[in-house]
């Protein structure tokens, strides 16, 4: 059955994020730990720049907590590229057990969810969970060469460049309280430039499951943050919630927080980095400061590939929910 797990023994100890220059110029720019000066970050390819951001974010987690690599039992991380090359190649530099997580843009929530369950189950003491994405590598993987003169659809997202990581352990200022692993949902949306619409049903399904399993209402959380539904996806989600009479005002979308309207990004930020960086550098500090008490993060992922898009298959999506609570 589709369970929601209640956890009592897992905490977020620390968080870190690294973002690209465009994200650094956005409304949350000052909050991120590191804003890299240019998107290639001194490397010879965008792929290398992406993994460097993830590695830097992981190292920052260690630095902030004063842990050594041997204090960490496991790293769980994911990205959007084929064979998970960013996470896998970043892990190459670490003497820590590693498992790559693929959940497309939901990778961060999935990593945190699985890491938390492993700790709650008593299998691991301390886990770092994270995710990364990079605008240029995603464009190359899923769309066109970056220098090609194309107009972006008004529904299109802008894959965010960045990496966000958190340290999960047995004590900390913020507790991980509830986890729901989502089902893969496909409402037949085929438009790869409207991923928000493809992902909204998944966000609804997981949120609905989560609330039903716990007998809760959206108002029971101070904030429900979806990952990267963007403007159109958020509207679609609100319609679906309205039909199920679950409407509430306390919704936000990580992807909509990253850029200002002046940056002409269309539907908002997407990519693994959206929920990872916004949680690590915006939501987590709000929780530690007590400005928010209970936050539900629902990161969505569109589970398609370039091949399935070219074969005109529809876009399946998934969402995973993790509830965080301020301790004390």
């Amino acid at each position: 059955m589709n369970k929601t797990f209640l956890l009592n023994n897992v905490y977020v100890e620390e968080s870190a994020s690294v973002v690209g220059p465009l994200e650094g110029a956005g409304p949350l720019g000052d909050l991120f730990d590191v804003v890299i000066p240019d998107i290639i970050y001194g490397e010879s390819s965008f792929e290398k720049a992406e993994r460097k951001m993830l590695l830097e974010s992981l190292s920052l987690c260690l630095k902030k907590t004063n842990y050594k690599p041997e204090d960490i039992d496991l790293v769980l991380a994911g990205d959007l590229l084929n064979q998970l090359i960013s996470a896998n190649f970043a892990a190459r530099e670490l003497p820590i057990a590693f498992a790559g997580i693929f959940g497309a843009c939901s990778a961060f929530a999935l990593s945190v969810a699985l890491g938390s369950l492993l700790i709650e189950g008593g299998h691991f003491e301390r886990v770092i969970a994270g995710a990364c994405s990079h605008h240029e590598t995603a464009e190359r993987t899923f769309r066109f060469p970056t220098e090609l003169g194309v107009q972006r659809a008004p529904t299109a997202h802008w894959t965010m460049s960045g990496a966000g990581t958190v340290v999960l352990g047995k004590q900390g200022p913020v507790a991980v309280k509830e986890v729901t692993i989502g089902r893969v949902v496909d409402y037949g949306i085929k438009d790869a430039s409207n991923l928000g619409a493809a992902m909204a049903p998944a966000a609804f399904d997981t949120l609905n499951l989560h609330l039903t399993n716990l007998g809760k209402r959206p108002e029971d959380y101070d904030l429900i943050a979806t990952g990267d539904l963007g403007s159109i996806g958020q509207i679609c989600l609100k319609h679906l919630l309205g039909d199920a009479s679950l409407s509430s005002g306390n919704f936000t979308d990580c992807g909509l927080l990253v850029y200002s309207t002046a940056q002409d990004i269309h539907a908002g930020a997407s990519g693994c980095a959206a929920s990872a960086c916004v949680f690590a550098s915006y939501l987590y500090p709000l929780l530690t400061k007590g400005l928010l008490k209970k936050v539900l993060l629902i990161a969505t992922g569109a589970l398609f590939g370039q091949t399935t898009a070219q074969q005109k298959d529809s876009i399946p999506a998934v969402a995973h929910a993790v509830a965080f609570e301020k301790v004390g």
């Binding site: 659809a153 008004p154 529904t155 089902r183 893969v184 949902v185 496909d186 409402y187 037949g188 949306i189 409207n194 619409a197 049903p201 399904d205 403007s231 159109i232 509207i235 679609c236 319609h239 679906l240 529809s314």
Partner: peptide, 24 residues
Amino acid sequence: MRERESPKAKRYARLVEQEKPKIS
């Protein structure tokens, strides 16, 4: 979970079409 051909999916497709920002 496939909802691709269901009435629910069809209703949703109409909703998406309607909420799409109109390009000028």
